[in-house]
Design a binder for these strands. Sequence first.
DNA 1: CGGGCATATAACCGTCAAGGAATATAACGA
DNA 2: TCGTTATATTCCTTGACGGTTATATGCCCG
Lengths: 110, 110
Amino acid sequence: MDSSFAIVAEPNRRAILSLLATSEHSVGELETQLQMPQPSVSKHLRVLREAGFVESRVEAQRRVYRIRPEPLKEVDAWLAPFRRFWNDHLDALERHLDRMGQTPTEGKNR
Amino acid sequence: MDSSFAIVAEPNRRAILSLLATSEHSVGELETQLQMPQPSVSKHLRVLREAGFVESRVEAQRRVYRIRPEPLKEVDAWLAPFRRFWNDHLDALERHLDRMGQTPTEGKNR
DNA sequence: CGGGCATATAACCGTCAAGGAATATAACGA
DNA sequence: TCGTTATATTCCTTGACGGTTATATGCCCG
């Protein structure tokens, strides 16, 4: 049971997930959209399914796959501590710097 | 030059990044904190450096590493289309499920 | 200059996972 | 039932990656 990151590391799996992000798709649809051999698609879907990234619904002879959010949510959660490196609203950063005693000479005009 | 996801897939590299998320650290500090052989740390740092996840500053005989946000930012960006699966206000989620087709399983609250 | 500390690189090895080809399973229609 | 479509599984090979050990590089200080 490797980490969710290892699952998402595979480019084809990311492609599959991206397609499923928009709407659910059958194996055949994924196959043609990605121009990738069917056994490959099935194998990646198996990995994704067993890792909880997708689930499938049976519809006649087709299996229709859709996203399951939980594992990607974990990935998202792991990123949280890093978001401040880019997201940070400027004012929060400024408050921090202010608290640190830095008087940013000038260059901050408002 | 593989994708940023492959870099982050490695658990030890994630550990390194997590440590650096708080503050910068020298190689030796990482080595002891993670209880991992020094060559391993250096190799992972090399991978992280070449992929742009970290950069190093020379301080006497030490190299002090710190985070560079860009690649993680890319990862974060890739997640964007999926966020609506969990972040979204409940009613948006319901709209989504409606669009995805009716799966009248129970448990419609969370 | 020489020795010691801090970090990087090299070489080797084992593992593991992805790709491809062939085949198996399952469900539909006639 | 048979044939066809849709998907899953198996087997095999191959390449990449991480761990380990040993060695190299670089910098400081006596």
